[in-house]
Simulated assay, not measured.
Amino acid sequence: MRRFAATLAAAALFAGSACQQPAIAAERIVEAPAAQRTAKEGSGLKTAIFAGGCFWGVEAVFSHTKGVTSAVSGYHGGTARQADYKLVSSGVTDHVEAVKVVYDPSVVRYDQLLRIFFSVVADPTLKNRQGPDRGAHYNAELVPLSSEQRAVASAYLAQMKKSGLWSQPIVTSVEPARKFYPAETYHQDFAVKNPRHPYIQRWDAPKVSALKRLYPSLYRAEFRRN
């Protein structure tokens, strides 16, 4: 992710990997269809992992979603030794930037999270990139953590492919769960801590605004801190 640092301390870590990319057209917002196969997950908190490009925006959207109790930025896959921002952002590891989401299915179901994800977070037609970010570590992936989530995710992708809402082929995949490593502390709650950061203003604030506009019943104004 080519971006500026939030603080002087973080600046050194971001040097050489920044958000200094040429201007790129705004991401297209597509209101994804309501799922034909709804999730039946029972009671109690559930967990799922979503990879959709830069984890700042994924976390920001889900942290503003009712029923989500925790959204943690991190690295999915790869090894513990290489679960480091400088290494992951260089593209030399097997990680993808991802967010582990804990939610209450009595408030927001997994299929509703999928709809939000594909409406305002990730473009399902892009491979190894999202927004201004390029590389396999920015690939959009669904990582179910239960058989029910996997069935719902597979059914929803099939439904999306038949919907005709996207002009290009849908390439987002359902991936097996591997180890999830929380990202460095300065990445957590990044959007709320750095609302004036150029990357947040340009790419992520519009996603939160779209969540509020498209799904007002699932939007909450207060930011859920991890």
Rank of each mutant, 00 (worst) to 15 (best):
F180C: 14
K127S: 12
K162T: 13
W166Y: 15
S173W: 03
L145F: 03
H95C: 13
W166A: 10
P176K: 04
V102K: 00
G131W: 14
N139D: 13
K179R: 13
V107M: 03
V143N: 01
Q149F: 01
V121L: 05
S106E: 15
V152Y: 12
E148N: 05
A98P: 08
R178G: 15
P124G: 03
Y110N: 01
Q159K: 01
S119A: 13
L142V: 07
P124K: 04
L142S: 07
L142H: 04
P132Q: 04
Y181E: 11
Q168F: 12
T172A: 07
P124F: 05
V171D: 06
L142T: 10
R129Y: 09
A140E: 05
E175R: 11
K100E: 14
L114K: 03
G131H: 11
A151D: 10
K179Y: 11
T125S: 04
E148A: 02
G164D: 07
I170Y: 01
A158T: 10
V171K: 08
Y181G: 12
Q112Y: 10
E141R: 14
T125V: 09
V108L: 02
R109G: 11
P169T: 09
P144E: 08
L145C: 02
V108Q: 02
R109P: 00
H137W: 11
T93G: 10
V96K: 02
I116W: 10
L165W: 11
L145S: 02
A122H: 09
A136F: 09
A140S: 15
S154C: 01
Y156K: 03
V96C: 05
A136Y: 08
R115V: 01
D123L: 11
A158P: 02
M160R: 00
G91A: 15
R129W: 13
A98V: 12
S119C: 09
I116D: 09
R129T: 10
